[in-house]
Write a protein that binds this DNA or RNA. Sequence first.
DNA 1: CGGCAACGTAACAAAATTCTTACAAAATAC
DNA 2: GTATTTTGTAAGAATTTTGTTACGTTGCCG
Lengths: 232, 232
Amino acid sequence: MERIYTILAADDDPQILSILREELTGAGYKVVTASDGDAACALAAREHPDLIIMDIMMPGINGLAATMKIREENNVPILILSAKAEGSDRVLGLESGADDYLVKPFFRQELLARVKALLRRFDTLGSIRESGTEDLVRVGNVVLDRAKKQLFARGEYIHLTATEYGILDLLMSNPGCVFSAEEIYSRVWNSESFAVENTVMVHIRRIREKTELDPKHPEHLKVVWGIGYVFS
Amino acid sequence: MERIYTILAADDDPQILSILREELTGAGYKVVTASDGDAACALAAREHPDLIIMDIMMPGINGLAATMKIREENNVPILILSAKAEGSDRVLGLESGADDYLVKPFFRQELLARVKALLRRFDTLGSIRESGTEDLVRVGNVVLDRAKKQLFARGEYIHLTATEYGILDLLMSNPGCVFSAEEIYSRVWNSESFAVENTVMVHIRRIREKTELDPKHPEHLKVVWGIGYVFS
DNA sequence: CGGCAACGTAACAAAATTCTTACAAAATAC
DNA sequence: GTATTTTGTAAGAATTTTGTTACGTTGCCG
């Protein structure tokens, strides 16, 4: 028989907390709960849970700060809950170091599936984080979701096309590394080609337009004169 | 010897209530009854029944609201009773979080079979709610009945063909996951094939026509450009 | 300060992908 | 065996994405 995992759920809304408790205990996990960030930190230190589910909007030390604090001293996987603001796809908190996220209101099956996936990954890996394995690639306040092929910058969802995603995946997977236009082309398009630098350039521009606050003076996706592009 | 299960039956019709009591006690269960939603909630909190059978059309707090309220604080399985309106196959309440349903008038055998199945699955010992095992797959206001291969959207019964059911089962069992047309084809048809994207597409469209309020701007069954389709 | 080369921008055309519709083939029911 | 339902195919429309061209801007070097 497998061992029983302990999950720490932190949310200031007792209703959400009870839903979480119900679903997770129903699925066979042991659940401990906290209703604010401080309590979550204290419980995390004491109970050594196998997984933490945390709302990012909580009174006192909010979930974002709590996530970062826990992360400093513990390698436990953290799943973030965030409310979907009216109309906009605003998702905060991915930059705090979470391993996965769920937008409220969420569905039972999705919650359980993510919990299961996180536990499996961190269990088999012996809680060692391997780069390249993770779903979320984080560089600064830009987060790439490999599973859904989605991007978040400054907490907001940003739509990417397939090519744009490919380029960003390459650059963000190797932050600080410079790639020439030719190299980007050959690795994203999987084919050699002549005189296509401009094609890559246009895509770089489009990515900057979407991810950078001021595309003219990019903060992350920079050019290295005569060499190529870096993401940092 | 197995322990004796307690079942809470709630219905405003005393005749139905007496039938339920008779059948269930006859089958060896302990039965407590309530004749409205409030009483059902109170009894559920006090008696901690192993199963709740609830009519969704009741005076006062109706069964739908009662179901949701009970669900918030208790993981007990809930079986919903609903009257089949004249002519239409309107079945409300599946979206409230029920685990199974029965349309009145029902047969004794069907009632007992469902009660037995639910109790077995939810028995605190081995039965843990595992996704993939359940009869009802619920994503938003869309509910798929795996046992009967039927679909309900916004409380209404919707007829699905076999292929449509197969595709929806795949997508709804993995909400939030993107499946390419090829993958959908290979997993639903169980065979590889070339140039059949269009076939999948046509089925997707037909499903959307049936499940979505506005098929042109789908709410659940969305496309991810260049990648595939998701249900969320 | 020019000149030159590398990079950035905008608009537009081309291509790829998805959607829609209609109809024929196949399966199923009567 | 016929009628009905379901499934698959094809063609074109609509949409999104991608590539190209032309021109503007920036930084480097004398």
